[in-house]
Design a protein around this nucleic acid. Structure first.
Length: 600
RNA sequence: GAGGGUGUAGCGAAGCUGGUUAUCGCGCUGGCCUGUCACGCCGGAGAUCGAGGGUUCGAGCCCCUUCACUCUCGCCA
């Protein structure tokens, strides 16, 4: 077998005259009559041109004649520097070519189900997933996976330098009743019992803190049996991390240092030393979500007072009855293309996805020497109110103001936020803006579940209430803010963490507020509570999502693009067709089928 | 659980208001070509228009049903 001596991208001018062997796939063939053939050979490093001409050995000419796309081959040859006129500047190896002296075909290739290419006319995702091994031959997918491994390696290097231990935790664990749906694994040895695949190694990492392994991390696979999305798969990878004797500040600055280091090393991008911190309530009010895209500003403002003063009875009623109104200015960037009614209504449609019922727009138009508002709702605001609105929102001619109102604060924010996102995309405000990190802090610890009629942990039940809010635990849980933090990058939540509870009493109190009886809590989390009896250190942690961060770095819009073998939107792998049926025998063994006679 | 979008040759697409033999590019295939590099040139094969039903003299196009994929809401501590 012709065994590789170099990756093709290493075929550079300094090897001119030397014999090399490359292994790879036939990327493209260009035949020029009998005497001259060019073969582009591709391996994971790139592409190089192999040349076969009338001076080549007859074996080589014969073999070259039979080559087709994607044959897997080995080529022995001499690296030749190309004449200046023949240099291909678009190719990394464009200054050289390999003059073949031997070609070995390792394996032929059927006609491909789709072209292996990087351009936009590539096959649809479904087909790409079915033939994922071919899809991964494309330069883009290879680049994405290589970036991913470099990203993880850089993280390991940094954390190792900070004294962190990489420790594996089990993936067959006890099912915990809270949070997302668990994937369950039936036990063969114990009829009617199940393991669960971890949604995160949360409890184990806290136990490692009790063990005194005070700086832990793990590149951990996590599983959640929920519907997939562009940025969500049922299995995904998190950098799970926990540290003892640490407070919020320690975790935040560790992460800032980590990502500053990693982004410099992996994509040569300079991040600031500190990331902006925004309290949750401010983020909701100003950006309409808890994961704002800070690549552009365009803040949302309150519009309640303006509505209250107006004669727009329908919208006014919403705020007068305790509701909320939010407005966002849509600047007219191209003065020659004023916004049409239809365009503005498309923005309001965006808000309707989040159940908006009351929305309208106002447009600033020239009137006399100044500006006045137009649009079907303008008549509800008198001249003085219009002037005040124009000045408050700094509206210029042609700008529009998009307004939504809703009984619920969160809903009103989300509706305005969805319009803001559309603005960013449509006006191209995010293009070429690099990486905008921020922290969202001070999340509420609990939210009230109307359906179940009790409080629930907003993040999880092991997060610590802020010191100054402890007093509200008994009186008004909704008022309690937690020592919680999310890391946000370009509009995506990329990490989530908290300072944890390490006292039994407080932990039990939180369980109680979340409607966990002592018995139920004991049954589900007894081992954690017990561990807290034995000198549990204060600790805090975080878990950045590896897939999402790689997706953003590579400017992809789906995490499938940075996962080698992802599932589709219906949780199916079109390639191996999992999930699949299993034999009755297997089911019987797992006690999922019980024979009639046994049942007696 | 709900909504939007897509489905035409191996792949990516076009197909007007329902009207002849369903079009284009890539790929495949036969041939020509000694410096190409997304090589070029000449020829060829390849389609139950996702599936089923309906309306019509006539359906890729209209209607109904259904399937697959995709994005989103819900869900995702």
């Amino acid at each position: 077998m012709l065994k590789r001596t170099i990756y093709v991208s290493e075929a550079q001018a300094n090897l001119a005259g030397k014999e090399v062997i490359v292994n790879g796939w036939v990327h493209r063939i260009r035949e020029h009559g009998e005497g001259l053939t060019f073969i582009n050979v591709r391996d994971r490093s790139g592409v190089v041109q192999v040349i076969v001409n009338d001076k080549s050995p007859s074996q080589v000419r014969q073999t070259a004649k039979g080559l087709k796309n994607e044959y897997c081959i080995g080529v022995r040859g001499i690296v030749r520097k190309r004449d200046d006129s023949l240099i291909n500047k678009d190719m990394i190896t464009g200054e050289v070519e390999i003059e073949a002296s031997e070609i070995e075909v390792f394996s032929t290739c059927d006609t491909l189900p789709f072209a292996i290419s990087d351009d936009k006319t590539q096959a649809k995702e479904d087909l790409r997933l079915k033939y994922r091994y071919l899809d991964l031959r494309s330069g883009k997918m290879k680049d994405n996976l290589i970036l991913r491994t470099r990203f993880v390696t850089a993280i390991r290097k940094h954390l190792d330098s900070k004294g962190f231990l990489e420790i594996e935790t089990p993936t067959l664990i006890r099912s915990t009743p809270e949070g997302a749906r668990d994937f369950l694994v039936p036990s063969r040895l114990y009829e009617g019992k199940f393991y669960s695949l971890p949604q995160s190694p949360q409890l184990y990492k806290q136990l490692l803190m009790v063990s005194g392994l005070d700086r832990y991390y793990q590149v951990a696979r996590c599983y959640r049996d929920e519907d997939a999305r562009g940025d969500r798969q049922l299995e995904f990878t998190q950098l799970d991390l926990e540290m003892s004797f640490a407070d919020r500040e320690d975790v935040l600055s560790l992460m800032e240092g980590l990502f500053k280091d990693v982004f410099k090393e992996v994509v040569n991008y300079d991040l600031p030393d500190k990331f902006v911190r925004i309290p949750y309530a401010d983020a909701m009010n100003s950006y309409g979500c808890d994961k704002p895209d800070l690549r552009f500003d365009c803040r949302i403002s309150d519009f309640s007072e303006e509505l209250k003063a107006s004669s727009f009875e329908k919208a006014k009623a919403v705020v007068c009855n305790g509701g909320f109104a939010k407005a966002i200015r849509l600047p007219l960037l191209d003065k020659s293309k004023p916004y049409s009614r239809k365009q503005l209504e498309e923005y309001l449609e965006e808000a309707k996805i989040y159940k908006n019922k009351t929305g309208f727009f106002l447009k600033a138009e020239k009137e006399g020497n100044g500006l006045a508002l137009s649009g079907s709702a303008a008549k509800f605001f008198d001249a003085g109110q219009q002037a005040a609105i124009i000045s408050k929102f700094a509206l210029e001619e042609g700008d529009a103001l998009l307004v939504v109102a809703d009984e619920k604060w969160k809903a009103a924010c989300a509706q305005a936020g969805s319009m803001r996102s559309r603005m960013g995309a449509q006006l191209g405000l995010t293009q070429g803006k690099g990486f905008a990190f921020c922290w969202i802090v001070d999340f509420p610890l609990f939210s009230y579940n109307e359906e179940l009629g009790h409080w629930e942990a907003e993040h999880h039940m092991f997060s610590r209430p802020k010191k100054e809010h402890m007093e509200y635990l008994d009186t008004d849980p909704g008022k309690v803010l937690g020592d919680l933090y999310d890391l946000v990058l370009n509009g995506y939540e990329v990490a989530s963490g908290s300072v944890r509870i390490n006292e039994i009493e407080l932990q039990e109190k939180i369980f109680e507020i979340c409607n966990y009886s002592k018995e139920r809590a004991q049954k589900a989390f007894g081992f954690l509570l017990e561990a807290f009896r034995y000198g549990a250190p204060p600790h805090a942690g975080i878990a950045p999502g590896i897939d999402r961060m790689c997706m953003i770095i590579q400017n992809e819009t789906s995490i499938k693009e940075v996962i080698a073998f992802p599932k589709n939107t219906f949780a199916v792998s079109p390639m191996d067709e999992s999930p699949s049926e299993v034999s009755e025998e297997q089911l019987r063994e797992l006690h999922l089928i019980i024979d009639a006679k046994e049942r007696k």
